[in-house]
Amino acid sequence: MKNNVDRSKKYLNPYLGGILLGLVLLAANYMSGRGLGASGALKSTIISSVNAIAPDHAENSAYYNEYNSTHPEPLKTWLVFQMLGLIVGGFLSGAIAGRLKFKVEHSPKITSKRRLIFALIGGVLFGFGSQLGRGCTSGSALSGMAVMSLGGFITMAAIFGTAFMLAYFLRKNWI
C-alpha cells in the first residue's frame, strides 16, 4: 500500500498538469493558429500509405481523392510533426519518472488477452468515430472547447456521455 502511494505521487498534480496542457494548447493557437490533435496524423499516415501501395485505388476512391486534393504531402502536415513530438515527449517523461516498461496494464479481474481484445475493439471504434466526428478528444473536444466551437462541445458531451452510459457494463474491465 505504501508503495502505491509513492508511485502515484510521481504523477503531476492534475490541476497543474491541466494548466500546463492549457498553456501548450494556447501556444499552439498563438503560433500556429490551431489546436492540438492526434487522429488526423493517423489519417495522414494511412492516406500516404495507400497512396504509395495502391495509387490506383487512392485515385478512384472519393475519400483519398478529397484529401489528396487539399494536402499535396500528407506526411508533411502539422499534426504528423506534433504526434512525433508527442511520442518523444511521452517517452522523456516516462524515462524521467522511471515508468518505461513493456507490459499489458489490466485489472486483476481480467486476463491480458481479454484486455488486448478490448483494446483492439476500442481502437477500431475510436478510429472510426474520430473520422466521423472530425477529430478525437484532443482535436475536437479539447481544442474545440478552447475556441468555444459548438461542434467541440457537442463532441465532448457525446464522448463522455456515451462512455458514462456504457461504463456500468464494462466495469469488470477496469475496477
Binding site: 475493439i121 481502437g123 475510436f126 472510426f128 457537442i154 457525446a158 456515451t162 456504457l166
Partner: peptide, 11 residues
C-alpha cells in the same frame, strides 16, 4: 462520431 468514440473509450 462522439458516441462511437465514447464507446471506444470505455472499451
Amino acid at each position: 462520431g462522439g458516441a462511437i468514440m465514447g464507446a471506444g473509450f470505455i472499451f
